[in-house]
Amino acid sequence: MTLISNDSAWITIQETPLSLEEVSEFLRVEEAGAVDIFLGTTRRWTEVEEKETDRKTGRPETVLLEYECYKPMALKEMHRFVNEAFSRWPVCRACLLHRIGEVPLREISVIAGVAAPHRADAFAACRYLIDTLKTRAPIWKKEHFVDGDSRWVEGDSAPEHLSSPDTM
């Protein structure tokens, strides 16, 4: 399922676990002195309304996250974010990988990675990739709690008049 658009970009959506080792291997190139990698992982406690909380901890326990996506559009958007990162910063390599389906505690749901000559650009481009993915990519997560309950996470609202690609 891996889709590599060219030698310097790696974008994929997959149901299997994401490999940090493969990402690190992909990003470490001779031109880059800085590699920035963001991992999004499933955490046990998330903030929700008081009425749903466990009285002892004050927070309900999550057992896993379940991701769903509109895959062709999500991939198209992810390619757009990566292309934009290349045009805004001096990026040597970039990757944006998302896992869908069930992602248990501590496991990685998303990896954004950037290799650049210097760290400021690597940080900026990597942050751009993950921030943009979280507001634009048609991907959704559902939290499954320890008591068997579940709910869709309330996502980021749309910026008004959002249309693409003009607003990018």
């Binding site: 999004g40 991701y67 996506c69 509109y70 559009m73 999500a74 998302h98 749901s109 998303v110 993950i130 993915l133 979280k134 507001t135 634009r136 990519a137 048609p138 991907i139 959704w140 997560k141 869709w152 996470v153 309330e154 996502g155 980021d156 609202s157 749309a158 008049h161 249309s163």
Partner: peptide, 21 residues
């Protein structure tokens, strides 16, 4: 945008606020 004209053959998707990542 909502005023975009949809035509036969188009694929339309309803995107609620996204929560990937």
């Amino acid at each position: 945008p909502r005023e975009h004209m949809v035509q036969a053959g188009d694929e339309v998707a309803l995107i609620t606020p996204v929560s990937g990542g």
